[in-house]
Design a protein around this nucleic acid. Sequence first.
DNA 1: AGGTATTCGACCTCAACACA
DNA 2: TGTGTTGAGGTCGAATACCT
Length: 318
Amino acid sequence: MGKHERQKIEEAEKIIVKILNSQKLTTSDRENYWIDHAFAIAKKIKEDFPYIKIARHLGNRYDNTGDILILSNKREFFIETKMSDTKTGIGTKANIGQDALTENLLFENNPKSWSEFRRDKKHEEWVNDYLNHFVKYPKYILKITNPILQKEEKARYLRELKKKKNKTAENILNLIHERDKKEKIEYLNYLKGQKQRKEMIKKFFVLITLGIHKKDVLENLIKSNNFFQEAQNLFVYYSNIFQGKVIVHKEDVGEKVRKIMERFLDFAIIFPKDVTHCKIVGIKKDGSREPLLQIVLHWKNIAQGIKTPCLNIFDLTG
DNA sequence: AGGTATTCGACCTCAACACA
DNA sequence: TGTGTTGAGGTCGAATACCT
């Protein structure tokens, strides 16, 4: 299977819409990698909602969650699809901005963001110090005037050398990696000492669960009080491969959120020891806790500590 | 082996910026 | 003042490492 299936996935969403609207499929539609998933999902949607008037593909829009809009008898609802080749893969729930933990008022007294914390730790400087343990960078890298770009190219260069079993390169990247990991844990320890805002944590959990991940939308909605309507009409269809067959299951997001709200008295962030993540947990009446979301401090590009810090969020609710 | 933790890639949009 | 370029941020997902 190819690595990047995003366009194909988007085409598959459009194919689902065509099937729902009883439109003819093209040859290339039928050759889509996810065609079996598309048929299976469309079939299940039809079973679940027999009175569909029209379906529309939404694509990337700011004003809603979900990939597909369905107009049924007087009702309209949104459908989000997640197609996976594996048995259980449901993908990353969200991958949001590095400072989202502090930008969304989850803590009292406005604690430092991860990026501010790193600035205080002189992250860029120590990374550069390590990178400069290597002294034979090619000219084209040394000529780069933008220090950020030069740092990235150095790291990239070392990454390639590491693939070729160069020990020095590997050692440097490992040192950066280890120190960065310590820095992440140190930051999480710092957050651990902050007073939490339970209501905000609850809202944050609900919004992420609803698929609202974009920085500004998240920040605005979390300050408002009536975003629950958004949940009422959202359904996620997951398709997975199980024993060679496509299995589809539907998730009613509104119901899921309602149930979780009933089940838990309270919400909190916990900080397991010595790992690079924290977790949002629900707390029941008897005080017991259940994990809901895992939030990982992470660097997306090149190597840890180098480029594009972010938060990876995983759904732990099963 | 199988689950969990961690790392990383590809592609997308958008806004800032330079430049004509 | 439109237009091309570039970096930051966002999204979806896989690959790999690391446990027990």
